[in-house]
Design a protein around this nucleic acid. Structure first.
Length: 805
RNA sequence: GCCAAAGUGGCGGAACUGGUAGACGCGCUGGACUCAAAAUCCAGUGAGUGAAUAACUCGUGUGGGUUCGAUUCCCAUCUUUGGUACCA
């Protein structure tokens, strides 16, 4: 019988569906394992081979864990709110709901054709009112806790999209060809900064890649410093700056404030006023990106005003420059040009003094010295002396001095900013807030607040969402009077911030999640997805999770215990797959040609899961050959009947190979090193074939080991050799440790580090025996002749090494 | 610029805590089977010298170092990829 993958794969997919093979949650006495994919946005372009990589990895893990006796939760759903469906609606008038439904259908077909063992009864969709009812519920909790507030903020306004973009999205949109300007608008904002410290601290215990943890820490950007108040000459006011280097106060030679600083214009002397005004005007025209990114040369303007350095009593000119950000710290800095490269550049540009206060190996007039490891110099007055102290001591001493003199106070700052949470779009969760005529706000009493049908999906010309154009939805009256509904909707991130919880209890209409089920299933044991979500999605989800923890909705501090980022699959030309390059390999295409098992195996065999690697269609042929070999183990060529399996004992070598293979496949599968697990199974199959082995244990062990990787062919062969139940519920084979080690080993002999010969020796041979035997090897004798052995090294079971002269 | 990761045959990659570099697969070469082809099977395949399945030399981006021994550790350097954008 021939191996016809298309017939077999359809047969078993239908079987699994009919038998609810992968329904989870029944056997709560077993240990649980929750393995989750980052759920996709169902786009119109369909899935390509790159998408399938992570899903295959999680599916192998899910199937493997089931086979090892775990109660596995492995769900899938749709992150279906989003811009593309809305844009398509604007263009064609098709309701985003229709577009979304069509795309979901096509995505689901592909995923099912891959044989993924999802529990489809738990499927969720973020645009389903039964789902977003709870997204809105969480928002109201945030509002009640004071974590959601409205603010008139300078936002990134995109004229073409008529919407506000998050800071994080700006670059991407500009790259897509949109223009973005700054403009003030009323926005809902979430106070993620209130959780900054916990978001850093709790990273500690997570099994996440170190680089992702580091990226999150950098993004939050906690820094410890001091706010210092500088006395201003000829003004009653003080100027407050933030610094992380109070230890260098003696070296501060000028101050800089941002153009948006409230004092910017007030500090300008009559003589400088025109120039200052022009500079401030110029800065307003630039976007944040222009100001911070492209510009290499520093610009600035002197206000004409001087402040007093509290340590030295020297006058410090106050400058205005746009390299100082309004949104960070106090919007003002003290400049220590000798020990900060930006300050140094600025000082050189405008000929300001540079004073060395940290012992430098070179002249600071020539080059900046930023190292913190050195000690202070030129840093004393009648009250304080920092000379000779290292950073941590001098920081402490100066901070304390400033605090006692009431000149400043310690302050922790973050780069992280609060999260602008509203969007001026139709296709998103409505924010369930009512605005009354007297200016009060009330929450919607009945959730979900659903989207009304609209005629057109264009944003309103005022910058509000299309919802502002629907009077019957927009306006209403209740016992508190007449109200207008909030027209902003939530960003796409909202639905993905908590979906992992809903999979645990997807149909609960009374609660977000049943606490008992939550305690059983949380945390997510393994979360697999692309590295592009390293910061935003994962940070937002962690933030919401902590809020839910504080509310008592969840019992764990963190949502995702172990995170794994799969590497991108590139096109055959070694470039990132994209429509414009025309190098996209669509999933359906390869599935039809090679079958799900081959695609699954090949994607895993390509290389380490975390690595970026190019697709090569030729390579998949080798996997097809491997599957045919497995098939022929059961159905010899030209035979319609499966070959009878025997109970005849295996040759010792083959038996040891089997146990080695089992061990390696277990170890590698646990560690997501699927490429080497597959190669080990290939070796085993090659040897079985060469030996013509039809031993039942050998063949069955192979099929079970292979089943998480290639579920369809193994189900079929499992049935062929006489089993009535699914291979997916069969326990994984175990190995005998005694049989994993070889009994006879090849020992290498090195002379001065070069390999000069090998010999065979029984395992665990004593040192003396190995030395004696090594000296008997012909090629070794030759090299030892006329030489003096100065050292003999023996590594048990591995090698003998002689150092000679 | 800064931060992180990585450079191994024609190609994707393998190599445990320093211990026989190149597993497995692709590709290629030769052979068997066939009228022929496909499929399958067998043998070979890092480079060089060599008649050789003898032997030796070189070889994990480059240059040094530590070591009996380095793809692995250290220093310097080049290249590539990802992240980030003056955060005081």
């Amino acid at each position: 019988m021939k191996y016809e993958f298309s017939k077999i794969e359809k047969k078993w997919q239908a079987y699994w569906e009919a038998h609810n093979t992968f329904q989870s949650g029944k056997e709560v006495s077993k240990p649980k394992y929750y393995v989750l994919d980052m759920f996709p946005y169902p786009s119109g372009t369909g899935l390509h081979v790159g998408h399938l990589e992570g899903y295959t990895a999680s599916d192998i893990t899910a199937r493997y864990k089931r086979s090892r006796g775990y109660n596995v939760l492995h769900p899938m759903g749709w992150d279906a709110f989003g811009l593309p469906a809305e844009q398509f609606a604007i263009k064609t008038g098709t309701h985003p709901k229709t577009t979304t439904e069509n795309n979901i259908r096509s995505f689901k077909e592909t995923l099912q054709a891959m044989g993924f063992s999802y529990d489809w009864q738990r499927e969720i969709n973020t645009t389903d009112p039964a789902y977003f009812k709870w997204t809105q519920w969480i928002f109201l909790k945030l509002y009640e806790m004071g974590l959601a507030y409205m603010s008139e903020v300078d936002v990134n306004w995109c004229e073409e999209l008529k919407t506000v973009l998050a800071n994080e999205e700006v670059e991407e949109k500009i790259a897509d060809g949109y223009t973005v300007i700054r403009r003030p608008l009323r926005q809902w904002v979430l106070k993620i900064t209130a959780y900054a410290d916990r978001l850093i601290a709790d990273l500690e215990d997570l099994e996440w890649p170190d680089n992702v943890k580091q990226m999150q820490r950098n993004w939050i950007g906690r820094s410890e410093g001091v706010n210092i108040d500088f006395e201003l000459r000829c003004h009653n006011k003080k100027l407050r700056v933030y610094t992380t280097r109070p230890d260098t106060l003696f070296g501060a030679t000028y101050l800089v404030i941002s153009p948006e600083h409230p004092l910017a214009e007030k500090l300008a002397t009559a003589q400088q006023l025109v120039e200052v005004k022009n500079y401030i005007k110029g800065a307003k025209l630039k976007t944040e990106l222009e100001r911070t990114g492209l510009q290499k040369e520093k610009t600035g303007v002197f206000t004409g005003t001087y402040a007093i350095n509290p340590a030295t009593g020297q006058p410090l000119p106050v400058w205005i420059s746009d390299f100082v950000l309004t949104s960070y710290g106090t919007g003002a800095i003290m400049s220590v040009p000798a020990h900060d490269s930006r300050d140094w550049e600025f000082a050189k540009q405008y000929n300001l003094p540079i004073i060395e206060v940290i012992k430098s190996p070179h002249d600071v007039q020539e080059k900046v010295f930023e190292d913190k490891d050195s000690t202070c110099v030129n840093s004393s007055n009648s009250e304080i002396n920092l000379d000779g102290l290292k950073f941590s001591e001098s920081f402490e001493k100066m901070a304390t001095w400033l605090e006692t003199k009431k000149l400043g106070e310690r302050k922790v700052n973050y780069k992280l900013r609060d999260w602008i949470f509203s969007r001026q779009r139709y296709w998103g969760e409505p924010i369930p807030i009512k605005h009354y005529e007297d200016g009060t706000l009330r929450t919607e009493t009945s959730l979900p607040l659903v989207l009304p049908e609209v005629e057109a999906y264009h944003p309103s010309s005022t910058g509000e969402s299309p919802l502002a154009n629907i009077p019957h939805w927009l306006f209403g009256t209740d016992e508190h009077g007449a109200f207008r509904r909030e027209t902003n909707t939530m960003p796409q991130w909202a639905g993905s911030c908590w979906y992992y919880l809903r999979f645990i209890d997807p149909k609960n209409s009374l609660q977000l999640i049943d606490p008992e089920k939550e305690r059983y299933w949380m945390n997510v044991d393994l979360y697999i997805g692309g590295a592009e979500h390293a910061v935003l999605h994962l940070l937002y989800a962690r933030f919401w999770h902590k809020v839910l923890f504080d509310l008592g909705v969840v019992s764990t501090k963190e949502p995702f215990k172990k995170l794994f980022n799969q590497g991108m699959i590139l096109g055959e030309d070694n470039e990132k797959m994209s429509k414009s390059r025309g190098n996209v390999i669509p999933a359906d295409h390869v599935l039809e040609r090679y079958g799900a098992d081959a695609v699954r195996l090949y994607e895993m065999f390509l290389g380490p899961l975390e690595q970026v690697k190019p697709w090569n269609t030729n390579g998949i042929e080798g996997i097809s050959r491997f599957l045919s070999k497995v098939w022929r183990l059961v159905y010899p060529e030209h035979s319609l009947q499966p070959a009878p399996l025997t109970e005849e004992p295996m040759q010792e070598e083959l038996l040891r190979r089997m146990h080695k293979t089992i061990k390696k496949v277990i170890d590698d599968t646990e560690n997501l090193k699927f490429n080497t697990a597959i190669s080990e199974m290939m070796v085993f199959v090659n040897e079985l074939q060469k030996a013509g082995c039809k031993n039942r244990t050998a063949v069955e062990s192979l099929l079970i080991m292979l089943s998480p990787y290639a579920p369809h062919i193994t189900e079929e062969l499992w049935e062929s050799i006489g089993h009535a139940t699914s291979i997916s519920s069969t326990p994984f084979p175990t190995y005998n440790p005694a049989l994993v080690e070889d009994s006879v080993l090849t020992i290498a002999v090195q002379i001065n580090g070069k390999l000069r010969g090998t010999f065979l020796a029984p395992a665990k041979s004593p040192k003396e025996y190995l030395l004696t035997e090594a000296k008997k090897v012909e090629s070794v004798i030759k090299f030892l002749e006329g030489q003096t052995i100065v050292r003999e090294i023996v590594v048990a079971d591995k090698l003998v090494s002689f150092a000679v002269k």
